[in-house]
Design a protein around this nucleic acid. Structure first.
Lengths: 193, 193
DNA sequence: TACTATACGGACTGACAGTCCGATTGGGAA
DNA sequence: TTCCCAATCGGACTGTCAGTCCGTATAGTA
């Protein structure tokens, strides 16, 4: 990172950490940027200079948490990477997302609220949606893949994740997502070429 | 409605109509209660006395729009009522919801935003979810019907409806919901694997 | 007409996202 | 090591909005 001052980088991290901490302690609803600034030991202006807006802050936090999955998907190794067959990739990808969502309920909820009614403009969401649409195009070319991808991602809606994991934990969420996916994308041999 | 004063009833209607109008004109995001009060020719206090909160206002508006469907579902006549077989009822119900959603995108979006992170506490949503869960219990007793019902209702998320109807109108939404439903609930006779 | 429970309205409060600008400081140049 | 300034900081300030409060007005009744 040439040209990035040390204090800028330090504050950036402090803000992200503080946000995570406040999310964990208070509900996702009750994290104001004033509170984040105070907790990070930083002025409010700094948050806006770094992240642009409340929305930007939560988008970056989500992107950070999703980075590992992104790299695996962009790489080659199975089951997530380009080296695996589409159905395997799809199931593995959804499973990763389910685990991620279960682990980060508060962040998901806050992110959703912050992106309110622009959900589809979020870079991370778009990436996920594009990936799913691509895979579905290979597996179910007969359907409206764009729509199907949105519905599948709907499985990771904050409220839904909270509801499902409340009774059954992440295990139930992963199982239930897997069931849905296998219903929508039948085993190879039974259907599409 | 015994004991309800005439001015109270009149104002109630004025507020609901003003809200609809502002929703239609400005985006769902940009309807403040001050604006509603002004448009309805009413004090702000009156809105809160009648509806309790912003959330309550939009919940009642949605309930009003959904009343026709509710009555049909609670009644007997096919295809929505108890007189029809479950699969017919399910498909007809989802089709009605799709039509309703397409017709009321702005309201759906505003309602979602107002209920933010308490979506599942909304009486209308609960009613829909209970109904779907019941039908799915008859059709797919092998699955997590509660989850499946939420996913199906996810099809009427404001952003998704906007995205889908933007290219293809309500026709596309209805078709796509129908496809999804028939995939999840196979025709009788073919049964589950 | 008089009377009172009910409803009205809009000023007021508190919270919060986002802006602005004078004060501060990191880090390269001399 | 010292100097300097562009990059960065902080927090006071603004505008907006949901929700509250209470003095005033009125519908409906006797």
């Amino acid at each position: 990172m040439p040209g990035v001052r040390a204090d800028a980088a330090r504050n950036r991290q402090a803000i992200l950490r503080a946000t995570e901490e406040l999310l964990a302690v208070h509900g996702p609803e009750h994290v104001s940027l004033d509170a984040v600034a105070a907790a990070a030991g930083v002025g409010k202006g700094t948050i806006f200079r770094r992240f642009g807006s409340r929305t930007g802050l939560f988008q970056e936090l989500l992107a950070e948490r999703a980075a590992r999955i992104r790299e695996a998907v962009d790489g080659v190794p199975a089951p997530l990477g380009r080296g695996a067959p589409p159905r395997t990739r799809l199931l593995a990808f959804l499973d990763e997302l389910a685990a991620l969502a279960a682990r980060n309920i508060a962040l998901i909820a806050a992110h959703e609220q912050a992106c309110a009614s622009d959900k589809y403009d979020d870079p991370t969401y778009r990436r996920w949606h594009d990936h799913l649409t691509g895979l579905l195009g290979q597996l179910r070319p007969d359907t409206d893949t764009e729509y199907l991808a949105h519905v599948l991602l709907g499985s990771f809606d904050g409220d839904l994740v909270r509801q499902i994991t409340a009774h059954g934990g992440s295990t139930r969420l992963r199982a239930v997502v897997h069931d849905l996916a296998t219903t929508l994308v039948p085993e190879p041999g039974h259907a599409t070429t």
